[in-house]
Amino acid sequence: MTVRLRGHHLLCLLTFVGEGYTPSFTRNYVEIAKRLSAGEAVTVVDGPDDICAPMLCDAGAHCRDESITRRDSLALASVSDILDRQIVPGSVLVLDADRLRRLRSAFVEGKTAAACAECEWAGLCSRVAGGGFTDVLVHAAEDLCLLREEV
């Protein structure tokens, strides 16, 4: 089984600390973070994904807005450049320690800024990145083993 993610959620997950639009959205996202941290693969999709699912019944959900679709395209271009691999809908990847490190470093360096422009969560994401990503909920499975050994 894989987690279905749209383009910009490949960036959002880098700084996810358990905050979201609604309690059901946040609970769902926390469960997805656990799956990703356990090493479950990602399948990139075009449009609403597993993270969007709790919002899709809301008439005001922005998941299908043109601005979000544009954000997905910008994010996929950024992620492709960072990972040196074309990432498009249908691509499958595992967010291992190296990929997460590369993506987070690029986020800090501003290489994903175009995809994050106009996002209401940009301030929170910048604070999380500025704090060294210490409270994020998505970790590579091998990182979790190291964290357990350090405790």
Rank of each mutant, 00 (worst) to 15 (best):
M1N: 04
M1E: 15
T2K: 05
L5K: 02
R6D: 07
G7R: 07
G7T: 15
H8N: 10
H8Q: 03
L10S: 05
L10G: 07
L10T: 09
C12S: 08
C12Y: 00
T15N: 01
F16Q: 05
V17C: 04
G18L: 04
G18S: 12
E19D: 13
E19K: 13
E19Y: 08
E19H: 15
G20K: 09
G20L: 15
Y21C: 12
T22A: 13
S24I: 11
S24D: 13
F25S: 08
F25G: 08
T26S: 13
R27Y: 05
N28Q: 09
V30C: 13
V30P: 02
V30K: 15
E31D: 14
A33V: 11
K34S: 10
R35D: 14
L36M: 07
S37L: 09
S37T: 13
E40F: 00
V42C: 12
V45L: 09
V45S: 03
P48W: 04
D49Y: 06
D50H: 07
D50P: 05
I51Y: 06
C52K: 04
A53I: 02
A53M: 05
P54E: 12
P54R: 08
M55D: 04
L56S: 05
C57T: 15
D58T: 11
A61E: 04
H62P: 00
C63E: 03
C63Y: 03
R64H: 09
D65W: 14
D65A: 11
S67M: 10
S67K: 11
R70T: 13
R70G: 00
R71W: 09
A77G: 01
S80E: 06
S80R: 07
S80K: 01
D81N: 08
I82F: 10
L83P: 01
D84M: 06
D84W: 11
R85S: 13
R85C: 14
I87M: 02
I87A: 01
G90W: 07
G90V: 13
S91K: 09
S91T: 15
S91N: 05
S91I: 12
L93C: 07
D96F: 08
D96N: 12
A97W: 00
R101W: 10
R102I: 07
S105T: 13
S105M: 10
A106P: 02
A106K: 00
F107C: 02
V108C: 02
G110Q: 06
G110M: 05
K111R: 13
K111E: 14
T112N: 01
A113G: 01
A115V: 08
C116E: 15
C116G: 05
C116S: 03
A117M: 08
A117F: 07
C119F: 09
E120Y: 14
A122D: 08
G123V: 13
C125G: 06
S126C: 04
V128H: 03
G130L: 07
G131M: 04
F133D: 10
T134A: 15
T134N: 11
T134Y: 04
D135R: 14
D135L: 12
V138N: 04
H139I: 02
D143N: 01
D143V: 11
D143F: 04
L144H: 03
L144M: 14
L144F: 04
L144A: 07
L144V: 14
C145S: 14
C145E: 15
C145Q: 15
R148G: 03
E149P: 02
E150T: 14
V151P: 04
